[in-house]
Structures are given as structure tokens and as C-alpha cells.
Amino acid sequence: MGLPCGTYNYSYAKDMAILRTKTHWALFIALLILVFTAPLYCDNYLLGVANLMGITLIAAVGLNILLGYCGQLSIGHAGFIAVGAYTAAVLTGTFELPFLVGLICAGLMAGLVGLFFGIPSLKVKGFYLGIATIAAQFIIIWFINHLSITGGFTGIAVPYASIGGFVFDTEASQFYLIMTIAVLCVFFAKNLARTRIGRAFVAIRDNDLAAEVMGINLFYYKLLAFFIGCFLAGIAGSLLAHWIGFMNAEQFSISESILYIGMVIIGGMGSALGPILGVIFIRLLQQGMMFIAPMLESAFPALPAGFASGIAPMLFGVVIVLFLVLEPRGLSHRWMLFKASYRLWPFSY
């Protein structure tokens, strides 16, 4: 299953490896080279979109661990990102601490806040937990708006990221910073998913009764999932703060939280590839929508007023609905099917 013809496993190490064949390695290295040379042939705008995707990906990977693997619905992810963003903003902006300190503290702070809001998960599941985590969203934003250290409603400016005197002040340097961290996060998440902790998470998701009887401490692992998921959200928040340069609580609305869930679902819950595909899909779609109204208005001046600008969100909705109807198991599942059929081609079985 799942291997190209003629590839056999002669050791468990090989069976467990992610990259099995020379082709895998070649493609993987080619992809990494392609990604890390992007600044050579992309303009600032495309790099900006890529940076946004990288930041979003880190947060989505976190949510995927929480929701996709451990099955704990969190509708407050944007709130946890906000915790990270503001922690980094305050530490590096107000207290002028180094970027890396801010980054780690942002992750830890978001993780701790996540732990607190994860406590209801011990008693409630599914949509009930979802409702409980919505509270996190509102409480966090309320605090940000009413604390003076966060700049209240006005917001807070954030300096560029810098490591040891090197300032990430161009889009390209930020791209390297963000992509490196994003690649590391995906790598960590994939490893976590395929080892002991990951199996415990999936066990809790699929059958929490059996998981407990098989010796998995639900209390510990549910909270661990919240901690890891929110830690990554905090890391993403820190990068977002340094990238945009200005934080305002309104940037972390509940619709952002829902969008993150959408990305994880569309990409494919509980797969390493899922968040990557989901983030690329949603962010590209959003960027596309950004262009579509001006294009329609200039191409068809006779359109009734408001039609062109109304079509973008409609199209956005239609594409997502179509997606959920036609591929409810996410893009990563579609990718697996494609790979399988590609390997068997031209035979039908």
C-alpha cells in the first residue's frame, strides 16, 4: 500500500521513513530549493503572500494537532494567535527584548492561555467544547482592548524581527525567517503525529473510552494538545506581529478563527499535508477575491452597482461549499488518490 511498484521495506526504519525512494528525495530537495530560492524570482507582493501563508501555516499546523489529531474543537484560535502577537509586541516593542526571546515567550504565553481554556475539554466534547472555546476568543480580545500595556483599542507598533544585529527588514529576509520556522513546525508536527504522542492524540480523538482503558491519561494529553496547538498559534502570532508591524485587536476576529477551522477541514484533518494544502488554497482564494471585483468592474462597466464587489464573497462561499460536498475528506485525501492512480497508470487497478 502507498508505495511505488517494486519498492519493498527491508527494515522497520525504512517502513517508517517518510521519504522512501530516490524520487521522493529528489522531489523533496527540489521542492525545498524551489521554496528557498523564491525571493530570486518573486516580487515583494508574491513574497508577502508567501509570508502570510507561512505564518498562517504555523497556526494551522497547531490547530491541526488540536482539532485534526486530538479531535478537540477550538473556535478561539485567532484569540490564541492574538496572545502570541501581543506578547511578542509588548516584549520586543515596549521592553526591547530580543526577537527570539519574544518568539519563545509568545509561544509559551499562548500555550499557557490555551491550557487554561482547554480545561473544559476534560468535561465536554465536540460542539460543546467549541462553544467553550469561543469564550476564549472574546475574553482574550476584551483583555487586549482594556489593558494599557497592549495599547488598548488603538493597538501597538512592533519593530522588525532581528537576530544578533541582523534586522529582517526586507520582504525576502522575512521570507527566509518565516519559511524556516514554518518548515521546522511542519517537521515537528509530522514527527509528533507519527510517534507515541501523536498516536495518543488520535486514540483520544477516535475513541476516548478505549484510549483511557489502554492507559492514556486523557487529562494530560488533552491539555498537552491544547498547549502544543496554542504554542504554535503563539509562534505564528509573533511572526505576524513582526511582519505586519502593527497589532490591533480587531485583526483577530472570530471569523479568522472560523477560517482557520475551514483551512484545516479543507486541507484534510489529521494529516500532515492537510494544513499546507488548506492554507495555500484559502489564502490564494482570498488573494484571488481581492482582484476579482476591480477586474469585473473594469471589464463590465454595465454591471449594476455593487454586483462585482458582491460576487467575490459569494464565489468564496460557493467554492468552499463545493469543496466540502465533493471532497469532504479534504485536499490531502484527493492528493493521495491522485498519487495512487498516478502510480497505477495506465492500468486501472
Partner: peptide, 17 residues
């Protein structure tokens, strides 16, 4: 002109665009 949908992240990419 671009439609930012009142979304901060989008606005950040738009100014770059």
C-alpha cells in the same frame, strides 16, 4: 484598487501589491 474585505492580513499584502 483592491478589495481588502476588512481583513488586516489582506490589507498588509495589498499595500505590498
Amino acid at each position: 484598487w483592491y478589495d481588502n474585505s476588512y481583513d488586516a492580513a489582506k490589507a498588509a499584502t495589498i499595500v505590498k501589491k
